[in-house]
Measured scan of single mutants.
Amino acid sequence: LQAFIKTLTGKTFTVEMEPSDTIENLKAKIQDKEGIPPDQQRLIFAGKQLEDGRTLSDYNIQKESTLHLVL
C-alpha cells in the first residue's frame, strides 16, 4: 500500500509498504528516502504516536492514509 508522510514544514512524500510492516520498518524507509535517522522520527496517525514494535494494521493504516512526521 502507498501512504503519505507529511512533515511539519508541509512537505509530503509517499512510501510503499505492507500492512504487516512494523513502524520500525516504516521509519527505515523514511530514512532511505529522506535521510532522517529513525531515532529522530515521531510518527503520528489519528492523533496517536506510533510505537516501533506495532504494525500498520495494528493502527488500521490503509492505503493513501496520511501520517504526520514530527522531528
Results as ranks from 00 to 15, higher is better:
Lys48Asn: 10
Arg54Asn: 10
Asp58Lys: 02
Thr66Leu: 11
Lys27Asn: 00
Thr7Leu: 14
Ser20Val: 05
Val70Ala: 07
Glu51His: 07
Gln41Lys: 00
Thr12Met: 11
Thr7Trp: 07
Met17Asn: 02
Gln49Met: 14
Val15Ala: 01
Leu71Ser: 07
Asp52Ala: 07
Arg54Ala: 09
Val70Ile: 13
Phe4Glu: 06
Glu34Ala: 13
Tyr59Thr: 02
Lys29Asn: 03
Pro37Tyr: 04
Glu16Trp: 14
Thr55Arg: 12
Lys33Val: 13
Thr55Gly: 03
Thr7Phe: 11
Ser57Ala: 14
Leu67Trp: 04
Ile5Asp: 02
Leu71Glu: 06
Glu51Tyr: 05
Tyr59Trp: 02
Lys63Arg: 12
Ile5Tyr: 02
Asn25Thr: 14
Phe45Tyr: 13
Leu43Glu: 00
Glu18Val: 11
Glu34Gly: 06
Met17His: 03
Asp21Pro: 01
Lys33Gly: 04
Ser65Gly: 07
Pro37Ser: 08
Pro38Glu: 07
Pro37His: 11
Leu8His: 14
Leu56Pro: 02
Val70Cys: 08
Thr7Ser: 06
Leu26His: 01
Leu43Gln: 00
Phe4Ser: 07
Val15Glu: 01
Gln49Trp: 13
Lys11Arg: 14
Leu1Ala: 05
Gly47Glu: 04
Glu64Asn: 15
Glu64Cys: 09
Pro19Trp: 14
Ser65Asp: 14
Ile44Leu: 11
Asp21Ala: 08
Ile61Lys: 04
Lys11Glu: 08
Glu18Met: 14
Leu71Thr: 10
Lys29Tyr: 08
Lys48Phe: 09
Leu1Trp: 11
Ser57His: 09
Leu56Asn: 01
Lys63Leu: 08
Thr12Pro: 03
Leu1Met: 11
Ile61Pro: 05
Leu71Arg: 07
Lys33Met: 14
Ser65Pro: 07
Leu1Asp: 04
Phe13Ser: 01
Leu67Asp: 01
Glu24Ala: 15
Ala28Thr: 09
Leu50Val: 05
Leu43Gly: 00
Gly53Met: 08
Asp21Gly: 07
Asp39Lys: 10
Lys27Tyr: 02
Ile30Leu: 04
Ile36Phe: 12
Ile61Leu: 08
Gln40Ser: 09
Ile61Cys: 03
Asp58His: 10
Phe13Asp: 00
Ile5Thr: 01
Leu71Ala: 07
Leu43Ala: 00
Thr14Trp: 11
Gln31Ala: 14
Ile5Gly: 01
Val70Thr: 10
Ile61Tyr: 06
Pro19Ile: 11
Glu34Arg: 08
Asp58Met: 05
